[in-house]
Amino acid sequence: MHNIKHIWKKVLKGDRQAQQALYDYSCDDLMNVCSRYLADDSSHFDAMQEAYIKIFTKSKAYDPCKGTLDAWMARIAVNECLQILRKQKRLILVDVKDTNREPRVIEDVYSAMTTLEIFKEVQALSPGYRAVFNLYVVEGYSHNEVGEMLNISPSASRSQLTRAKMILKQRLKKKTISMSYEEAR
C-alpha cells in the first residue's frame, strides 16, 4: 500500500512511468469491472481507455478521505461503462412488476460451476439487467443510488434486480443440470 501511495504521488505530478505503474497495478481490476458491464471487447477497450485518461487527467479530484483509490478508480470505470451503454442506447430498462421479494439463490445451484461460467452467465444478461445486477450486488450500491445512476426509480431498480436474478438462476440451474448429465454419462 505504501508503494501505491508513492506511485500515486508521482501520478499527481504527471509522471509517465508512475502512470504506467498505476495501470499495471489496477488494469486487471478495471478490466473486470468493464467486462461485467459491457459485452463486446471493443467497448471494454474504449471504456478502459477513457477511464484511464480520466484517472490521469482528473487525478487531483481524488480525495483520500472519501474512499480508497481502488474504489475511486472503479467508480470512474463504472461511470464510463454506463456512459458507453447510454451512447449505444442499449441501456433499456423496462419497469417490470415488483414482486417485492428476491428469489433465493441456492448456493448449490452454482457451487458446481466455475467462477468463469458464472461470470459468463452474468455477461449474457441484457445490458439493463446486467447494469442493475452489477451495481447492486457486486459494487454494493443501494437501490436509491442505482436509481440515481441509471436515472430510474428505486422501485424500478428493485424490480430489474429481481428479474435479473430470476433469469440468472434459471440459466445457472440449467447449466448445472446439463453438467450433471454429462457427469452421469
Binding site: 486487471d28 458464472i118 454494493g140
Partner: peptide, 13 residues
Amino acid sequence: TYRDELKSVKVDF
C-alpha cells in the same frame, strides 16, 4: 458469494 466470485475473475486482454 456473487460478489466475490465475480470480482475474482481475471479477464485476459
